[in-house]
Amino acid sequence: MAEDNGTPGSGQPLAVLGAGVMGSGIAALAIGHGVAVSLIDVDRARLATAAARIDHHVRTAQLLGASPAADAPGELVTGLSPDGLLTGAGAVPAAVIEAVTEDADAKAKALADAAALVPPGTPIISNTSSIPIDELARAVPRPADLIGTHFMNPPYLISTVEVIRGTHTAEATLAAVRALLTGLRREPIVVQDAPGFVTSRILHPMINDAVRVVAAGTASVPSVDRLMQGCLGHPTGPLRTADLIGLDNLVDSLWVLHRRTGDEGCRPCDLLLDMVKAGRLGRKSGRGFYDYEGEQA
């Protein structure tokens, strides 16, 4: 039963910082499992469309049999700042999940602001793709409460979650996050802290190479994806995956990896940089390596 696992049924909401691709996806995962969400984004326009995007995600999950709470979805409240949303009767969150832009300073600020408002012992979770948790720990008042979860996109359909334990992460924080994820029917895989952890450290330079192959004229975009799918069992192909991630986010993450590992394979290639400059960000902007016109991101 969900009640045995903590948050679902406990009545406490989950606080989600950032209403972008991942924040709205994580919110949809929780809401589809009957957990209330307090969603915060500094961008008014983003926030204005959040409810509709989340509803679309929740229905997608239902359609694909990935969401159980068709009759009792969690409630959504949104706000431009955590003040007020994370305090007061019924508002104290079971955990805070940060999914803001992949920028160490932006994350440090968002994490510190939220941590200052919630009781000690509340897990403060960063959904960073690649920034080491120990680096973010310097920004928060209680590093023992800080931990990483690296949900894959879309979080409401992918059932495995990489969980990153920082040097200072408390046993109780890890246990609470395991319970939270199990309650949302996700399977946590706990790994140690490092730039890009496991999945981004392997996937992001691989996607970068796939883009280089296309830029070199070796093969077309669909050919690269078809080969990686058909021959190597990759579920979507690296370039379609890049579109799903968002090319801007991918570039940010590659820079994080490049700066911290010195691996030249992580330096975002020119074609990727050009596409971001031209606003071709992938699925969320309607166009990336493929066209998504008429589709809702």
Binding site: H56, R59, T60, L63, L64, P154, L157, G294, E295, Q296
Partner: peptide, 10 residues
């Protein structure tokens, strides 16, 4: 692909 099933709904 199943991922696009919602397009039919919309």
């Amino acid at each position: 692909s199943s991922l696009h099933a919602m397009e039919l709904v919309v």
